[in-house]
C-alpha cells in the first residue's frame, strides 16, 4: 500500500543494527517526553501533598492514597460537570454533524448560483478566532437570555465547528459518483431519504471522524464555558480544575487527582476511536 515501509533506511549492514537501535531509542525518548508529564501528575495524585515537596526526584506511590480521588470526585463536582459536558457536547456534536453534512452536500454536489460565495463564507469560519466573539456575545446573546444557559454554549460550539466539518465532508462527498442519487431519484426517493440512506452510508467513515473530532474539540473547550456560565450547576468538566485551585489551593494531591479525572474521558474515547481520528487527519491534511 505504501512505498516507504519497505525501503531500508540503513543499507550498509555494518551500521544497520546500530542504526535500528538508535532509531528506536530516539522514538522512545520522544514517547517518554509526550506521556511522562501525565504519569508524573498521576503519580502524585495518589500520594500525600507533602510528598510532592519531598527531596526525591520522583516518589513512587508505595502506599496509594486513593482518598484524593474521592475528594476530587465529590468536591470537584465531577459527576455534575460530566453530565453538563455531555448535554452540551452531545447536542452540539450531533447538530454540527448533521448541519455540516447538509452544507457539504449542497456546496459540492448541487448546482446553484451562490455556491462559491457560500463555500467562501463557510471557509471564513475557519479563520475567525472564537475569542473575537467572547466580548460581544455577552450583549448579543443576552438579548435572547442565552447567557448562562447550555443553549448559549451549544450554539457557538456548533458555529465554530461547522467550517472544518463541512470541509471534511466535502472532501469525501466530492469523490462519490453522481449516479448514486440519480438512480435513487428515479426510483422516487426524495432528498431526506437520498441523503440519509444513499449518501450518508457512503460517507460513513467521514461521519465517524467528524463526530469524534467535534466531540474532542467541544469537550475540551474552556474559555467560552468559563466566561458565559455563572451558575455552578451548569458548568462543564474542565472547570472543575479551576474550582480546585481556589478551594484546595493548598492540596496539590487532590488537584492532581482532579486533573487525572478530567483527562480520562477524552483519553478513553481516543483509545477506542484513534483510527477515526487518524483518517480524519488524512482528509484534513490532503484536502485542507
Amino acid at each position: 500500500m505504501n512505498a516507504l515501509t519497505k525501503t531500508p533506511l540503513f543499507d550498509r549492514s555494518a551500521g544497520k543494527r546500530f542504526g535500528k537501535f538508535a532509531l528506536y531509542a530516539f522514538l522512545v525518548v520522544f514517547a517518554i517526553l509526550q506521556v511522562f508529564p501525565l504519569l508524573w501528575v498521576f503519580d502524585y495524585s495518589i500520594q500525600k501533598t507533602g510528598d510532592l515537596f519531598g527531596p526525591e526526584l520522583i516518589k513512587l506511590p508505595l502506599v496509594p492514597v486513593w482518598h484524593n480521588y474521592a475528594r476530587a470526585w465529590v468536591d470537584g463536582k465531577i459527576l455534575r460537570y460530566f453530565i453538563n459536558s455531555s448535554i452540551v457536547v452531545v447536542s452540539s456534536v450531533l447538530i454540527s454533524t448533521v448541519v455540516s453534512f447538509c452544507l457539504a452536500y449542497a456546496t459540492t454536489r448541487m448546482v446553484w448560483k451562490l455556491r462559491t460565495l457560500a463555500a467562501g463564507f463557510i471557509g471564513l469560519g475557519m479563520v475567525i478566532p472564537i475569542h473575537t466573539t467572547l466580548l460581544p456575545n455577552f450583549i448579543w446573546f443576552n438579548v435572547f437570555g442565552l447567557i448562562n444557559t447550555h443553549v448559549g454554549l451549544i450554539i457557538p460550539y456548533i458555529a465554530f465547528t461547522l467550517s472544518f466539518n463541512t470541509l471534511l465532508f466535502a472532501g469525501q462527498l466530492k469523490t462519490l459518483p453522481r449516479s448514486m442519487e440519480e438512480s435513487a431519484f428515479l426510483d422516487g426517493a426524495r432528498y431526506p431519504k437520498i441523503l440519509a440512506s444513499v449518501i450518508a452510508p457512503m460517507a460513513a467513515p467521514a461521519i465517524v471522524t467528524v463526530l469524534v473530532m467535534t466531540f474532542l474539540t467541544n469537550w475540551n473547550e474552556f474559555i467560552m464555558a468559563n466566561t458565559y456560565l455563572s451558575t455552578d450547576d451548569l458548568r462543564t468538566l474542565p472547570f472543575s480544575i479551576i474550582r480546585f485551585q481556589g478551594q484546595y489551593s493548598s492540596d496539590y494531591a487532590v488537584q492532581f487527582a482532579c486533573m487525572t479525572l478530567v483527562a480520562l474521558p477524552p483519553l478513553v474515547l481516543y483509545f477506542f476511536f484513534s483510527r477515526w481520528i487518524m483518517s480524519g487527519a488524512t482528509a484534513g491534511a490532503v484536502k485542507g
Binding site: F138, N148, S230, G246, S249
Partner: peptide
C-alpha cells in the same frame, strides 16, 4: 447559593457579570 473564586478571578467574574447583567 454561593459562588466563590480566588481573589483576582473573582473580581474579573464580577465585571463579567455586570456586563451580562447577571
Amino acid at each position: 447559593v454561593t459562588e466563590s473564586y480566588p481573589d483576582q478571578p473573582y473580581q474579573q467574574k464580577i465585571k463579567i457579570y455586570a456586563t451580562a447583567k447577571q
